[in-house]
Simulated scan of single mutants.
Amino acid sequence: MDQKIAHLGKITGKTLLFGGVYSNLQAVEALKQIAEKEHIAPENCICTGDIVGYCAQPEETVQLFKLWGAKSIVGNVEIQLRENADDCGCDFREGSRCDGFSLLWYPFAQSKLSESSLDFLKTLPNNINFKYADKEVSVVHGSYFNVSEFIFKSTDWAIKKPNFEATNSDVIIAGHCGLPFHHQEENKLWLNPGVIGMPANDGSPDVWYAILEDSNDLFNFTHHTLKYNYKLTSKLMQNGLLPEEYSRTIVTGIWDNTEILPPFESGLQGFGIQL
């Protein structure tokens, strides 16, 4: 597979994991403050991609991310933007509500990004590999095989398992689906820290990230919620160019639709995250 892979070697100490910044400047500002409070160095902050997305400040978000110095792989959105493609590449069903919304937010983001930001996106690898405690870890967006593949907790292990084999990993850290979860089988761990740019369809405006810790050289992880100035984010999105439904989701924590979700995850809408 022709993919650009960043090999980070062995990482030690607290490590911050997150994804789906989605042009949400207020969320990335809040998360950067968490990293600084927890004394997590920028090189130990790792994003699963989609720095750009649904919200109103794509240029400001990329520039802050670049200034922060956190690591990231490409999401499908970065791939499409740097190739000047016509759509976001999210693999939404044609004609679906999400597909219709992408016809608004993707051209908006495309129109706002500077050459400097696009050049930065071109530097991002497809995957990141590193060793943490006693585990070999790989960071992917959707899956190793398909950047736009939606993989959830309920997704069968038989679909997840080939990713570990292809990357020779004990742990896969992934993004794209928008929901935090972990799934352990056969001494392997699939860990999705969630996204910080949009709520997790749980009825709360708070968003999600995860932290790795290697105390006693053991691999430990915890899921966390992030509070940020979501009211400002929502207000900025009400610009007549972006989907109003997404600005409402920022406040309500409820997705406009569940068309990308399997039945199990769809049934949990508004009932909180099951971890």
Rank of each mutant, 00 (worst) to 15 (best):
I172Q: 03
A174F: 05
F150D: 04
Y106E: 14
W105S: 15
K131C: 11
V139H: 10
V139Q: 08
F152V: 04
L121D: 02
D156L: 07
E149D: 12
N127M: 13
N163R: 02
L113T: 10
L118Q: 08
K112F: 06
L104S: 14
D170H: 14
L124Q: 06
F152Y: 15
I128D: 12
L121W: 04
G142P: 08
T155L: 02
I173C: 00
K131Y: 13
F101C: 14
S148F: 04
P162L: 08
S114H: 12
D134A: 13
L124T: 04
L118E: 07
S111N: 03
V171R: 05
F120Q: 11
P180N: 01
V171L: 05
D119G: 03
S117L: 12
P180K: 00
G100W: 03
S116L: 10
L179I: 13
F152D: 02
P107Y: 10
E115H: 13
S169W: 01
Y132W: 07
N126E: 10
V171S: 02
K161M: 09
G178E: 03
E149N: 08
F101V: 03
Q110A: 11
K153A: 05
Q110K: 15
I128H: 10
F108K: 11
A109N: 15
K160C: 11
K135T: 08
F101R: 12
P125K: 09
A166Y: 01
E136S: 15
A166H: 06
E149W: 00
P180T: 01
H176I: 07
W105R: 12
A166N: 05
N129G: 03
T155H: 04
K112V: 04
N168Y: 05
K135V: 07
P125G: 06
A166W: 02
D134W: 10
G178F: 00
S114M: 10
V139C: 11
Y144V: 10
W157K: 13
K161V: 00
D170E: 10
E136C: 09
D156T: 07
N129D: 14
L104F: 12
L104A: 13
F130D: 12
N127E: 11
S111W: 02
I159E: 08
A158T: 10
S116M: 08
N163D: 15
W157Q: 12
S116P: 00
E115N: 14
N146M: 08
L103H: 15
N168C: 08
K160N: 05
F150I: 04
L124N: 06
S148W: 05
K112M: 13
E115F: 07
L124Y: 09
S138D: 06
V137L: 10
Y144T: 07
F150R: 02
P162H: 06
V140Q: 06
S143G: 14
I173V: 11
P125V: 08
H176W: 06
P162T: 07
K161I: 02
W157F: 15
D156R: 13
P125I: 08
K131I: 14
V137E: 06
V137D: 07
P180A: 02
V140L: 11
L179Y: 05
K122F: 01
K160Y: 07
I128V: 14
T155N: 02
P125F: 06
E165H: 01
P125Y: 07
P125W: 05
K153T: 00
S138L: 05
S143F: 01
S111C: 03
I173F: 04
V137C: 14
A158N: 10
Q110Y: 09
H141D: 14
K161P: 02
A166C: 09
P107C: 13
